[in-house]
Design a protein around this nucleic acid. Structure first.
Length: 464
RNA sequence: GACCCCAUCGUCUAGAGGCCUAGGACACCUGGUUUUCAUCCAGGCAACAGGGGUUCGACUCCCCUUGGGGUCACCA
């Protein structure tokens, strides 16, 4: 069988981490099986869909390298097809016009809730044998409802949840076309999945309750039933539901916040799926290993700290020139005017092992490219007469050195011995003056990278 | 409320009846390396929600309870 999966977001806002994981698993499963991964934009809600949101989806997928096969499909371009099949359903008696107004529906729902029963459409316009339908009102544009089988049950073997059974009597006659004639979600999904020969429907488990409706529709349309895989939710780090206002950052926010796409992918893949004890794996390995047997059926909490750890891993292992490309724009944003490539590369090499975030990374090496403000605190802590004299003496000697990293670091040790001081007594004040902070890697290496002129400038600027 | 889903360390998870004295990772704690801070290395803390079955034997299978979550739209 030729595997076809799809990612079907609605362009109504940001693409967040939950959506991306659904896309990721669908993508991985298709790739693993040498199948097709379709990107379909579910924009039938004309009121809420926006072109900006479509861009967000495209950019997010691109950033994460989740490439889809073929062109992006927009449901709004398929209205003719939906209409055709709605008519077919009407013709074969599986759908009917319903003239109940929204107000009446609200009223009905309220009544049912008050009575403590499950709120659902009561089927007042559903044509049945020996049933007298109400008179058609004048000013109501009808919706079209699907005639859900009134008994029996729908069951399917979910790839992650196992056997799921839902009785038809739990379902009501869903609206497949609004009063303005536009088709609704459940109907479009079914038509598209069937037209596009989707074999595996992979989506969030908030769709479980839609599945029996869709299966009924599929049956009415005489279409094959795909396999279903309902993924559990991702919860915010406090265990609450992820929502726009609560922890559900847009994917692109992660880029802006200093995360690498491969780290996001790796983290997300690991959230709800596992391959033994493997924690770090590439997109290629994910494709090779992915399966539904190891997709977790319970919800997972988002853990920022683990993401950061994975991010740090990928930063440590990334080629310097690639990191430079990522960090350069960040430095520019921070106000750097001139960027020396050698200094940048060397600084990256020196700092790479200690960084877990690209933004912080840029911030940490910012001092290489612009002057620093020495805080009063550091000044008080490290700069007294003694340390100032030491620095002057040190710089006076260091500028005579053969300018290599090793020479400078070697000399620092000699200097310490000669002056009978402890290493930090010279290293810390230098850090403060040169880097504006007391947390840096080897200060000798920093001096080397910066060059003697810049170092002297910084020192005289502060010690003057 | 009805229906559906879920349940192993704080978190992500391994575990397909004996391999489990429950493993790994993040976080945390301790020690080592170190030029401060990190990195790195070594070690440590820490869990099968509860109760019934089934079985010679249950983390693993079944049932109930409890607890979490989802869905009940002319949204997707």
């Amino acid at each position: 069988m030729n595997i076809v999966t799809r990612f079907a977001p609605s362009p109504t806002g940001s693409l967040h981490i939950g959506g991306i994981r659904t896309a990721l698993f669908s993508w991985a499963y298709a790739k693993k099986n040498k199948g097709k991964f379709i990107l379909r934009i579910e924009d039938t809600d004309l009121e809420r869909s926006t072109p900006e949101a479509v861009e967000i989806i495209k950019n997010g997928m691109k950033w994460l390298k989740l490439d889809h096969d073929g062109d992006i499909i927009f449901q709004t371009q398929r209205f003719d097809r939906y209409k055709e099949l709605i008519q077919a359903l009407l013709d074969q008696g599986d759908a009917y016009y319903c003239y109940t107004s929204k107000a009446e529906l609200d009223q009905l729902r309220e009544l049912q809730v008050n009575q403590g029963v499950k709120p659902k459409y009561d089927g007042r316009w559903r044509p049945e044998e020996n049933k007298k339908l109400p008179g058609i009102p004048n000013n109501v544009q009808p919706v079209i409802r699907f005639k859900t089988p009134s008994n029996g049950e729908i069951h399917w073997k979910d790839l992650v949840k196992g056997e799921v059974v839902i009785k038809n009597e739990e379902l009501d006659d869903l609206i497949i076309a609004r009063s303005d004639g536009t088709p609704t979600y459940n109907f479009c999904v079914v038509v598209d999945d069937s037209d596009m020969k989707v074999t595996h429907v992979i989506r969030g488990d908030d769709h479980i309750n839609n599945t029996p409706r869709q299966i009924n529709l599929l049956k009415a349309l005489n279409a094959p039933i795909p396999q279903y895989a309902h993924l559990s939710m991702i919860l915010a780090s406090d265990g609450q539901k992820l929502s726009k206002r609560h922890g559900a950052a847009s994917v692109m926010q992660y880029r802006d916040d200093g995360y690498l796409p491969e780290a996001v992918i790796n983290y997300l893949a690991r959230l709800g799926w596992s391959h033994g004890d493997n924690e770090i794996f590439s997109q290629e390995q994910l494709i090779e290993w992915f399966d539904f047997d190891h997709v977790s059926s319970s919800a997972a909490q988002f853990d920022q700290e683990k993401l950061e750890w994975i991010n740090s891993y990928y930063i440590k292992n990334k080629p310097v020139d690639e990191l430079a490309d990522l960090i350069k724009p960040r430095l520019l944003d921070m106000g750097v005017e001139r960027l020396d490539t050698d200094i940048l590369n060397n600084a990256i090499k020196l700092y790479q092992d200690r960084e877990k975030n690209l933004n912080v990374f840029a911030g940490d090496i910012l001092f290489f490219f612009q002057g620093i403000d020495l805080s009063a605190e550091l000044k008080n802590k490290y700069l007294d007469e003694k340390s100032k004299n030491l620095i002057k003496a040190f710089v006076g000697e260091v500028e005579k050195l053969n300018w290599t990293n090793d020479e400078i670091n070697k000399y620092m040790k000699e200097f310490v011995k000669e002056k009978e001081i402890k290493f930090p007594e010279i290293a810390m004040p230098l850090r403060a003056i040169i880097a504006g902070t007391d947390n840096t890697p080897s200060i000798g290496s920093i001096i080397f990278i910066l060059g003697i002129d810049d170092v002297k400038k910084r020192i005289s600027c502060i010690l003057k």
